[in-house]
Design a protein around this nucleic acid. Structure first.
Lengths: 300, 300
DNA sequence: TGCCTGCCATGCTTGCCGGTCATGGACACG
DNA sequence: CGTGTCCATGACCGGCAAGCATGGCAGGCA
């Protein structure tokens, strides 16, 4: 049945007149008369008594009316639910992000997004890129902030990628380091330096992607946490490689050097969604907040 | 919007395939494809992602689905509400009846009706015929059991009447009364008898309708209640006029005499409903119970 | 009482909507 | 690399649902 019938029915019941309802609804009287007849055929009962002046609900009509109201109300609620999703007055945004992106980039973007669309429920899980992509595929996340290096490409047929930035790799040195005045350095300049590593092969991971020349850093100190790592650097115990995204603002007790263009490993940061699926509307709203949260220090 | 669209939407969402839904719904695939397209145009958003194998709900589709379910459920509930009214599995029956009808006729009919249709809520108010007709007109009652005498005709243009019975007027006499063996008497036989009256002019009311010859009973005793009235008769203090409907079964201590045809006032008992209005379905179900509750003693 | 008016139903016509049929394109599968 | 499956779409058509006009009915009023 067409819901227009219910609307006509409701209007006629309210006005007590087919002619008046027709005027109100911009129909001809005959159209409304037939629509009521169609409704009556549908429910199998007369819903109005035809009086010399207008019409009056029968018992069946009285029974039907609240249902008609409920259905029509629910119909506009359905429309509004979809519209709210579009205007970001409702809905949710489940973000996945790799660890260093959670340090500053994504939290800032989420905070900015939430200020703009407070009705959207945001959530965030941290994970490594393959895990995040898996979450996308299973529908457990709406978007993922992922990193892509030549060693770990992302299948573009399965995921659509919005490029956010190309992340720099920075070298942290103490303020008294011999290269502290340089703006950029080459890895070869650091051959003799001692590296503070996050773990045995963490630095290897940071570098392996990009360097054709197998640069192997000399590692004397291993510090798992960033704070410890940078503490060692500040004390002059050595230098450290730092993914740019890990840096929130500019630290005062160390110097961050940019690597020469040719030495920089390329980590491309993307916002990924499932290919072939239209992402939730919140995703489109999130993207600009993510790009505008990018600190120039981080990007190539 | 046509609710068929919602049903198609729900089926496609459930089966995850337009083709499968088309088979299930006995449509062609192209029809369902267009219906989904029409729905999407209506809500202003894609509700399905088209995958290489089948379709999958978008976020908008997920938001829409519970509304579609609710609307369709409510639609069948609406149908059932009307059907229940017709099958007397629901609804109500508000009966009005004049006092003596409430003595036996209407209660029996209501009890019988309620056994047949226990889901219908019955109610009963007692009142005089004009009041009852007024209740009908204001919609405060569905049917009225009314009495009509030549002195108080009922406008057939305003009320439709179903004839139930023509009520007899009985004469109650003591078992030792000189006429106790007669089957029928004439009013003239009672000219010398003392009448036990319900009130000063109550007997007048009982008779005035029918008698061209102004028979005026001799009234010595006034007893307001039936029990007292008949008690007086049983004690041989006089005779009394009794509307037949007031008698439940045959009393043992008095004799009820029928009046001669020509002397009997005509009180026609009808079931009345508002003319021009289709009565609630329960009314039609009530009528046979009313007629079958008529005791042969009551009727001419 | 008879005319007029307001209300609803209905025969007739027409345009459009919503089906089917047939085809095409995309993609997974063997 | 063909083949089958799935969805979209162009062409077509039948029926439905509008509008228009008319008719019947009843109430109000002169």
């Amino acid at each position: 049945m067409d819901t227009i019938l219910l609307d006509v029915f409701r209007t006629v019941a309210h006005l007590g007149s087919i002619t008046a309802a027709a005027r109100r609804l911009r129909f001809t009287q005959s159209a409304v008369s037939r629509q009521i007849a169609a409704l009556e055929a549908d429910v199998g009962a007369r819903v109005f008594d035809r009086l010399p002046r207008g019409v009056a609900l029968t018992e069946e009509g009285r029974a039907l009316l609240p249902h008609a109201d409920a259905i029509l109300d629910r119909l506009v609620a359905a429309h509004r639910a979809v519209d709210d999703l579009h205007t970001l007055n409702a809905g949710r945004l489940r973000v996945g992000a790799f660890p260093t992106a959670v340090a500053a980039l994504v939290p800032r973007a989420l905070a900015s997004f939430r200020r703009a669309y407070p009705e959207v429920a945001v959530s965030l899980v941290e994970g490594l890129t393959p895990t995040l992509l898996e979450r996308l595929a299973t529908g457990d996340a709406d978007v993922a902030v992922v990193s892509e290096s030549p060693a770990g490409p992302i299948d573009p047929d399965r995921y659509t990628l919005h490029h956010i930035l190309d992340e720099r790799l920075l070298v942290a040195v103490s303020r008294t380091h011999r290269l502290a005045r340089r703006r950029t350095v080459r890895l070869s300049d650091l051959e003799d330096d001692s590296f503070i590593a996050g773990s045995a092969d963490a630095e290897e991971t940071l570098l392996r992607a990009s360097l054709p020349t197998g640069f192997r850093p000399r590692i004397d100190i291993v510090a798992a946490e960033w704070t410890g790592k940078l503490g060692c650097v500040a004390a002059g115990l050595g230098v450290a490689l730092v993914p740019a995204l890990a840096m929130r603002g500019t630290p005062t007790d160390i110097i961050l050097l940019r690597l020469h263009r040719d030495d920089e490993p390329t980590r491309r940061i993307h916002l990924a969604t499932l290919a072939g699926r239209t992402p939730p509307p919140a995703v489109a709203g999130f993207l600009p907040h993510l790009t505008s949260s990018v600190d120039p220090l981080w990007a190539r």
